Computed example of a mutant assay.
Amino acid sequence: MRVLVVEDEVRLAQTIRRGLELEGFVVQLAHTGTEGLWAASEERFDVIVLDIMLPELSGYEVLRRLRAKDVATPVLMLTAKDGDYEQADALDLGADDYLTKPFSFVVLIARLRALLRRRAPQQPALLSAGDLVLDPARRTVRRGDVALTLTPREFGLLEFLLRHKGLALTKIEILRNVWDAHYDGPENVVEVYVGYLRKKIDAPFGRTSIETLRGVGYRMVDPDGQPDHESSSTPG
């Protein structure tokens, strides 16, 4: 899940980012209202964490302009102010939730997950390919009756592949959604992590869940019923 955090306090923003990444979120930061407005308008996020007191444009103004552009991404407002009027203003402008600083990180995570559940009730509670099952809410993965242990990055990669099962995904698409929209490292990091996943979810069970498409990227397939594809594939 991709989260945009618009917060001008750099230390707080970095703390939020690290905490969310440990929970499996892909996080992009913006430190001014103008930067946040541009990112939220031009890119797709699952949820936005938006501070009210921002340089250049306030969080209120960012939210107002986003809703005027019909950007319906859920927004959780952050503020150091604790008052009914501030909360009412945020909600009237189109905010979906409101959290006052200082806040518990546990509460922030719970609020974000609640927003995601409300916005995407059509998404299945469990994601699967054959007997490989991922539970996004409980953050568990199993192959049949065997529980698997994945790192946060491996979990995020597997979740993204499962949510797009059967579709060809390029390395760039995977990097933007599992790493970061501004990741500028080598693309072969995707190959490395696909290799890690295969060793955990396929190799011990004699299965092939992640198909390599030469010159394209990867595709998650159902190991119990793989279709024939015209494109050439390899296990590497």
Rank of each mutant, 00 (worst) to 15 (best):
A203P: 07
I201W: 12
Y183V: 04
K199A: 12
Y193A: 02
V194M: 10
G144F: 13
A137L: 14
P204N: 11
K200G: 02
R198K: 14
L157D: 01
Y183P: 08
V189S: 08
R142D: 14
N188C: 06
R163E: 14
V192M: 11
L148S: 09
D135Y: 09
D145K: 12
G166Y: 14
S209T: 15
I174G: 08
T151D: 12
R163L: 14
V178T: 09
E173F: 02
R163S: 14
P136G: 04
A168M: 08
K200A: 05
V141I: 05
I201S: 01
K200W: 02
G144Y: 15
T140C: 11
H182F: 15
D145M: 04
F205I: 02
W179I: 06
A203M: 06
Y193E: 13
V178L: 00
W179D: 01
R139S: 10
K199E: 13
T151K: 14
V189A: 00
P204V: 01
P204W: 06
K165S: 15
L158I: 01
V194L: 05
P204G: 02
D184I: 06
A147M: 12
N177I: 10
R198H: 11
T170K: 03
G156T: 07
R207N: 13
G185C: 00
R142I: 11
D135C: 05
L169D: 10
E191D: 15
P136Q: 11
F160N: 00
A203L: 07
R153A: 12
L158H: 03
R139G: 07
S209F: 13
I201H: 07
L197M: 04
E191G: 01
R176D: 15
R143I: 13
P204C: 04
D145T: 07
L148N: 00
K165N: 09
H164S: 07
V141G: 08
A147L: 15
K199I: 05
R139P: 11
D202W: 00
R198I: 01
L157C: 03
K200M: 06
V192P: 00
L148D: 09
L161M: 09
E159L: 06
Y193K: 00
G206Q: 07
H164L: 07
V189G: 11
H164N: 15
L175M: 09
G185T: 00
L150D: 12
A168N: 08
K165Q: 15
V192H: 07
T149W: 02
R138H: 15
R207T: 15
V190W: 10
H182S: 07
P152F: 01
E159D: 02
E159K: 00
G166R: 12
Y196K: 09
R139V: 06
L150V: 12
D135W: 05
E154Q: 15
G185R: 08
H182N: 07
I210L: 03
T170V: 08
P186W: 06
I174M: 01
E187P: 02
L197Q: 06
A147W: 09
V190T: 03
P186T: 01
E191L: 03
Y183I: 01
V190R: 03
T149F: 12
Y196V: 10
